[in-house]
Design a protein around this nucleic acid. Structure first.
Ligand SMILES: [Zn+2]
Ligand SMILES: [Zn+2]
Ligand SMILES: [Zn+2]
Ligand SMILES: [Zn+2]
Lengths: 155, 155
DNA sequence: AGACACCTTGGAGCAACTCCAGGGTCAAGC
DNA sequence: GCTTGACCCTGGAGTTGCTCCAAGGTGTCT
């Protein structure tokens, strides 16, 4: 099958498939006479694996590691469970951070009902002072960029 | 004060301050004879505001909107509460998605204890089939990119 | 005079795509 | 035979919010 059909079956775009090929996650397929990429069921299975991992928000680095084990990178699958445990840790960290954030935002939200002149808005004041309720000191360090789920470890 | 001191007081890097200036969130400050940027307390307050918003994971677009209201873009602060409510919605959506993900990952994790030959690993099988337990049909659509907190609306 | 810390600009790089321009391929229809 | 249209190719730019770098200028201390 050609790239469009493969992508449709996997639920992603053709650009994404080409991107995975460039990144080395999908092997370069054969080509037709007209230079079209031609895929088989093996390619589809591999792409579906990748998309399933992405749906679980694994990074491409983590997926690369899993594929490496799958392709014969170890006798047992201890690396798989280790990676999965680490990734669950990533998700847990992110949930914990967002839950704390949500608390702060709720506290901030209570500081105004939305009909105040801008100069008196308790929300804007809260944001000027330090966010929600965890604000106390003066020159405290801002929270870093704990935004991305998966750090730099599975390489 | 110069950019380094400002950045330190706000808990970010000098590059970040210059970036905010390029993005129009911070006004261009005065310059010294030697062409150094010179900031005052007003700049620091504005930068602290921005960093507090970022600590709550608002997007720069959302922050731009808030600053617009602050700079005199409305009679009352209803826009502020609306934006905050929307952002709380962003956080809630993300938390809900991650909680579901976490369930799926836990289900997947149970499928192997890590001492199996790679070919028999229940985790790898689960990832090939469809993720965790929400896998049933054949050619289902992959979950999209609900990764970023704040969509495209506050412009 | 030299060392050192700090500043300037412009540009590249990150993750994981997504979109586009400018062109090639192929089957169907007239 | 020729056009239409769907599909494909490559290479490059854009997204978000920074972060790092090179190459050079400034300011203070010794
Ligand atoms: Zn992870
Ligand atoms: Zn208000
Ligand atoms: Zn938001
Ligand atoms: Zn296993």
């Amino acid at each position: 099958m050609r790239i469009g059909e493969l992508a449709k079956k996997a639920g992603c775009g053709a650009d994404t498939v080409r991107y995975y090929e460039r990144e080395g996650l999908l092997p370069p397929p054969g080509r037709s006479e007209g230079n079209y990429r031609l895929y088989d069921a093996g390619h589809l299975a591999r792409l579906a694996f990748i998309r399933n991992c992405r749906a679980l928000e694994m990074s491409l680095g983590e997926i690369r590691t899993l594929l490496g084990v799958k392709d014969g990178g170890g006798a047992d699958c201890s690396g798989v469970t280790a990676l999965l445990d680490a990734h669950i840790g990533h998700v847990d960290e992110r949930i914990a951070r967002l839950a704390a954030l949500r608390e702060q935002l709720a506290g901030l939200r209570e500081r105004c009902c939305g009909v105040t002149p801008v100069a008196d808005c308790g929300i804007l004041q809260g944001l000027a002072e330090g966010g929600g309720e965890a604000a106390a000191g003066g020159g405290r360090k801002c929270l870093g960029d704990a935004g991305s789920l998966c750090g730099r470890e599975a390489g």
